[in-house]
Simulated assay, not measured.
Amino acid sequence: MKVIDLRSDTVTQPTREMRAAMMAAPLGDDVFGDDPSVNALQDHVAALLGKEAALFMPTGTQSNLCGLMAHCQRGDEYIVGQGAHTYRWEAGGAAVMGSIQPQPLNNQPDGSLALADIEAAIKPDDPHFARSRLLCLENTIGGKVLSLDYQRAATDLARSKGLAAHLDGARLFNAAVAMGGDAKANARRIADLYDSVSVCFSKGLGAPVGSALVGSSDLIARAKRIRKMAGGTMRQAGLLAAAAQHALDHHVERLAEDHANARLLAEGLTGLPGVTVVTPDTNIVFVDLAKDRDGQAVVKAAEARGVRFTGLYRLRFVTHLDVTREDVERALRILREIF
């Protein structure tokens, strides 16, 4: 029986059409800058998000790291949420490798950072303090979509204080689809608010590997040098770039299916004893359990019956292109029996 893997949208397998695009990709040596598939992807992503240049990276962690280090020098500071991936889930890379001090702030329930908290965290120009240089937001964050008005207010505030703004947009297109209307135009509207954006191809878009950093030509030139130091340059990377290009061409609008499946899952779990479901904005469903319930026992019982998800600090289910409506319905039957 098929295993229903809801651990993350990173577990997706390349589709048959994506594999064909990879095999047909013209290749070169990207270290020399002559892989045509990489170059075409970078040009496409930059144009799509309204920036001068883009740089293809192996991972989103590296893309964010190169972005932060391109913005900040040793002894600088970036303002970020406590729950943000760049602070909590990327091994402290900005501090360890970039000597950039994080200034973490509490995320609000909707994932945002309070504007008053951002303003209060910006340091005066005084040798006692690290230099506040960058505001780093994330959209989506924990599956929640930051409103365009909020992002505009936050980035305007940052710039009024002399800070640049970076977006960890690992699931940027999930946010863009959830906004309704033209998803790619929405992605451009979001990206326009930031000096740099990192976007991931290996989550909901379904590519096997890869992210891109977009920004000004100068920033991307600095990031390219940092990528080299971080070991991120690849040779015939066009195989992977072709997968990312196929994902952009064919897998953006279909993210709405993942969002619908997440809503179906959330609705089906709501009302079960000892279960509190967080209504999803996109493709991530969080479930909090009553204190007398053992989350790890639930995870193990479900996995034994062919349903996989995570329970590190709360139960987390992520829908994606390899999970159908029928899979969600089957998972719900199993979870109801376990609960």
Rank of each mutant, 00 (worst) to 15 (best):
D156F: 06
R330T: 13
I334A: 11
L134E: 08
L248A: 03
Q82R: 04
S160M: 05
V214Y: 11
P104D: 02
D110V: 00
A91P: 01
T155E: 08
M22L: 06
A121Y: 04
L264R: 14
P104T: 00
W89Q: 06
T10A: 15
R336A: 02
Y313M: 10
D156I: 02
H320R: 04
T155N: 08
A230I: 02
K2S: 09
F286W: 02
E329C: 12
D110K: 02
R225I: 07
D156H: 11
L167M: 13
I122C: 06
A70T: 05
A25L: 05
R254P: 13
A21Q: 14
I190C: 07
T282W: 01
R330I: 00
T270Q: 14
E52V: 05
Y150G: 05
R308L: 12
T270P: 05
D322V: 05
V307H: 11
V287S: 03
R74T: 12
R316S: 12
K203H: 06
L255G: 03
N261Y: 08
V80C: 05
F173Q: 01
M229N: 14
K203Y: 07
D117K: 00
A158I: 07
A176Q: 04
F317H: 02
F309N: 11
T276E: 12
I190K: 00
E257H: 07
A20R: 11
N186Y: 09
A175T: 10
A304C: 01
T12E: 10
M234N: 01
G93F: 06
T140H: 03
A114P: 13
G180R: 10
V277F: 06
L6S: 15
A266W: 04
T319A: 09
F286L: 05
E90W: 04
A153I: 01
G67W: 14
R189N: 09
G142N: 14
K51Y: 10
V277C: 12
K300G: 00
Q101H: 10
G268D: 02
Q82K: 02
A290Q: 10
K224P: 00
A170D: 00
S196G: 08
S63G: 15
D76V: 05
V96Y: 01
S198N: 12
L167P: 04
G274A: 03
C72Q: 15
A121F: 06
